[in-house]
Design a protein around this nucleic acid. Sequence first.
DNA 1: ACTCTTTCGATACGACCCGTAGCGTAACTG
DNA 2: CAGTTACGCTACGGGTCGTATCGAAAGAGT
Lengths: 205, 205
Amino acid sequence: MCARETGRRTGRPRSAEADRAILDAARQALVELGWGRLSMGDVAARAGVAKTTLYRRWANKNELVVDAVAALFDELELPDRGSLRADVEGVVLQFAALLEQPATRTALMAVVAEATHDEALRRRIRAAIVDRQKRLVIEGRRRAQERGEIPPDDGDPTAQVDLIFDVIAGAVVHRALVSCEPVDADWAARFTTVLLGGLAAASAI
Amino acid sequence: MCARETGRRTGRPRSAEADRAILDAARQALVELGWGRLSMGDVAARAGVAKTTLYRRWANKNELVVDAVAALFDELELPDRGSLRADVEGVVLQFAALLEQPATRTALMAVVAEATHDEALRRRIRAAIVDRQKRLVIEGRRRAQERGEIPPDDGDPTAQVDLIFDVIAGAVVHRALVSCEPVDADWAARFTTVLLGGLAAASAI
DNA sequence: ACTCTTTCGATACGACCCGTAGCGTAACTG
DNA sequence: CAGTTACGCTACGGGTCGTATCGAAAGAGT
């Protein structure tokens, strides 16, 4: 989205090191200053590059910050822990650990807030962050079906996947970012009990 | 937080009409422009007052916007609909309707994002918005216990109230603001089924 | 009526930031 | 070496924040 590949045959190549330095500087500045007080000049100074270099790669502040944030969520995974309950608790704690890092927390809230009145930014965030994490729900469901813990699909599972995703991500984000209370193993266990009990009741209809 | 009561014995009184005009203008500007592009000069112009008048009442932009937002959540209520399920569905839809208003949506996200790196603002928001809404959960629980739908408390119900609150508010906020999909009667019904089933399973332990 | 106190409107101001433009230089290619 | 592109640097216009200043207005008390 920043460096063109086609038509670039000669000339001084872009510094990949500068890319990393800029994104790191942007994340660091976002943590320390927040969205409003983050300035492009400051990011450039932290990265040790000129401000014009930032604008050669990203069109504006929003684009740069979103790119800096998107990479933070790539580390989420869903290792097979042997049972649906363990998988859910595992991903809840993993997600919570990510949100406990000030970088991720500040970045996510800032980006979501900015997207509230920017449709293009909203689409970009949904594609880069939200839809990507839904894979975790889909994968966990598939494993649980293979284990026989939940019944196989009858029809389109999209609605149920969306509901589960909103409940998990919503509850964790709300507790971590709005209520500002810890998402520890005890909370994860109680939350998982509610979620699995609820899904069992819902599928029994 | 703005008008002092002690020591104010004489002089020209503050215009209460200006207060309302400023808060209305701030909400309107927040909807149209978002946090980043909302300017104090613009709010002053919309309200028909001088910019200095804003700074005489609020220390800075954050304080003004938070005050403008806090009032939006006062309209939430929990009418008795006769059953726990109906009460939950009612408050979910009511909350969702509030979040569907661009004013509330933009304002909430902007304020939460701003609070991520501002401890004082965070405390203010929790006291003014979060803790206030927990009353809805406490009241709904009490009614359900009186009806015999859920067992009475054994010990401190704080943890369960907090969990329920995070699940309800988190799921609704996440669907409405992050997933950007509608919270309609169908979704509310399915969500309530999951929640009540989960609570029944949790209390059966 | 007169004074005192406080608020109000209007204007100007310094500081900061965004995003752009121009220029000379560095790095890489054929 | 010539051509092309990225880079650092500087400067700029436009906008905003928050403050300062000053005269006028609106009440309260005597």
